[in-house]
Structure formats: structure tokens, C-alpha cells
């Protein structure tokens, strides 16, 4: 058996076959090019949209951002109401989703419930993110908007002196859109807050509890502060998602290009403006829409970059 050795001892090590060397080199290069390609797609999206927006950028300049008209007949375009709508709908959604999301994350990361139950509930919260946007849209039209009718009416009647509720509730508008956005970003906040709570060193929790801290004192004074940057990172990611969310918002916000501070009135966002007008737009209108898209790209890019930086910093501790 010993004689079956294929390489006699001491025989010089010969060169590797050309084919093997070539497959190694070309495979490595192929993967490298494609990896850089993924990053390039991000840049490419920005550049392509910017190029197509050029006619509108030249014509309207920065005034585009602060003008409130959208008139294809006169070629008068300004995206202020949509930018306002994008920011306000996202902010309302955040204000509602952050406490609910963090509360849910706490409830599902502590041992209030037996583990199997928590696993199922966590999975259900994740499922909120899996439901397609357009399904939230159809549900919003036929279920949420009618359901909000009495609530909207009550708000206007009793709190109508506050500009936020200054108009009558007519169905589609900022309020239903922001509520559906809340539901849609909830799982993002919950998931990341839960991850950062779970990844805290157990010693931290034990230290607090071991000294006789009640559970919620430990949560408020120790756990939440320690997981804070993770929660902020998740919130930023959710903000980026909310700003770019299209279908559900388009179907519920009423698509009015007038700026109105009342959340009971119809409004618009950049994303839903694109969804509504793109397919039927003329040349300059397309450029104006591309310009609006570029603004949205810039906004979400900044938010996502910040979010990623925060989340990455958090991951270092894991």
C-alpha cells in the first residue's frame, strides 16, 4: 500500500495547471467586478435620475423646492407640498410607531410571556413587514378610511381650532396615510430595538436586578439607555422607509397638490406624486418628476446613511 504514493518523496513541486490558475483568477475577478457593481448601482440610480432631471433643474433651480404649484398646462412645477407631505406623514408615523415599537420590543425581549409565545408573537410582528404595500392600500381604502370617519369628524368638531384639525374629514388624506405608514414601519423599529435589547450583556441586566431593582426600573435606567443607539438606528431606518413608501400612501393620501397643515385634509408625498403622474406625463413634466425623485433620493440617502452608521456602530458591541 505504501508504494501507491503518487508523488515520489522529494520530487520537486511542479507548477499548478494553467486551467486551475486561470479559473481561480477569473473567478476572483468576476466576483470582484460584480461586488463593485452592486455599489455602482447605487451611484448609477442617482446619476441616471439626475441626468433625466436636468431640464427641470436648469429651468426651475432651487426654487422648485419651495414653490407650491404643480401645473402641467403652464409648465409650472414646484414640489413644496409633496416634500412637506413626505416629511409630515413620516414624522407622524414615527411619533406613533416609536413608543409602540419599543414597547413591543421590550415586551417580547423580557420574559413576561413563555418563550414559545414570544417567538410566535415576534414572528407575527415580522409578518407586518411582509404584507405587500398595495394590500395595506386596498385595506386602507375599504376598511380604515370608513372606520376613521367618526374619529375624524369628532377631531374636527372638538379640536378644530387647532390648525392640525382645521378641515373636515373627507376620507383620503394625511391621517389614514400616516396611520398605515405607522403600521408599516412598526416591524422595523420593533425588530432592531429587540435585537439591540437582546444583545446587551446579560451581566448588565443581572447587575441591576441582582441589587433588587424592580424590573421596570432596570429597563428605564439601564436597558433602554444601553440600547439607545440601536433604537435610534432602527428609528432612522424606519424614517427612510416611511419617506419612500409609495403604494399604500398613494392610495390613501388623496393626492392633492395643495399644501394644507390639517392632517384631515388630502395631501401628497413625492413618492405618490411619482406613482400618480409618471406614466402619463409629458417631457418637461417627466423632468420635473425626475427632479422630485432626485430630491426623494437625496433625502432617503442621507437618512439611510445616518441610520447605517448608527446601526453599524451598534453592531460593533455584539
Amino acid at each position: 500500500m505504501a508504494s501507491s504514493t503518487s508523488s515520489p518523496k522529494g520530487k520537486p513541486i511542479e507548477a499548478r495547471s494553467q486551467r486551475s490558475q486561470w479559473s481561480d483568477r477569473s473567478f476572483t475577478w468576476l466576483t470582484r467586478i460584480l461586488a463593485f457593481g452592486v455599489a455602482a448601482v447605487l451611484v448609477f440610480i442617482g446619476v441616471q435620475v439626475a441626468i433625466d432631471a436636468m431640464p427641470a433643474i436648469r429651468r426651475y433651480g432651487l426654487e422648485f423646492l419651495v414653490t407650491s404649484s404643480w401645473n402641467p398646462v403652464d409648465d409650472a412645477y414646484g414640489a413644496l407640498p409633496m416634500i412637506y407631505g413626505t416629511l409630515v406623514s413620516s414624522l407622524i408615523a414615527l411619533v406613533l410607531a416609536v413608543p409602540i415599537g419599543v414597547g413591543t420590543a421590550l415586551f417580547l425581549s423580557e420574559d413576561f410571556l413563555p418563550r414559545p409565545v414570544r417567538t410566535v408573537l415576534s414572528f407575527m410582528v415580522e409578518m407586518l413587514a411582509a404584507i405587500p404595500s398595495v394590500v395595506y392600500g386596498i385595506w386602507g381604502i375599504f376598511v380604515l378610511i370608513p372606520f376613521l370617519d367618526p374619529i375624524g369628524g369628532w377631531l374636527h368638531q372638538n379640536l378644530g381650532w387647532i390648525p392640525l384639525f382645521g378641515t373636515t374629514y373627507r376620507g383620503p388624506g394625511m391621517l389614514p396615510a400616516a396611520l398605515v405608514l405607522t403600521v408599516m414601519i412598526l416591524p422595523i423599529i420593533t425588530a432592531i430595538a429587540r435585537d439591540s435589547l437582546i444583545s446587551l450583556p446579560p451581566a448588565l441586566r443581572q447587575a441591576a436586578l441582582g441589587m433588587g431593582a424592580t424590573r421596570w426600573t432596570a429597563i428605564f435606567r439601564v436597558l433602554i439607555p444601553a440600547a439607545f443607539s440601536g433604537i435610534v438606528g432602527g428609528t432612522m431606518l424606519a424614517l427612510g422607509r416611511a419617506m419612500g413608501e409609495t403604494m399604500a400612501v398613494t392610495m390613501l393620501i388623496g393626492n392633492s397638490n395643495d399644501l394644507n397643515v390639517s392632517i384631515l385634509a388630502p395631501a401628497n408625498t413625492v413618492a405618490s406624486l411619482l406613482a400618480n403622474q409618471f406614466a402619463e406625463a409629458g417631457d418637461l413634466q417627466i423632468a420635473a418628476l425626475m427632479y422630485a425623485g432626485l430630491v426623494l433620493f437625496g433625502l432617503t440617502l442621507v437618512v439611510n446613511i445616518l441610520a447605517e452608521m448608527i446601526v453599524q456602530r451598534v453592531n460593533v458591541y455584539k
Binding site: S7, K9, I13, E14
Partner: peptide, 19 residues
Amino acid sequence: TYYGQDLYQDVDAVQVRRR
């Protein structure tokens, strides 16, 4: 060196590991 042959001079690492 491997039987006198320098493992780090003009030798393919993959081939080294086959021996």
C-alpha cells in the same frame, strides 16, 4: 524548504498543500 525546494520561491501554494 521541502526536500531542498524553497516553498516560498516560485511555488504555487495550492500545489504545496497537495504534498
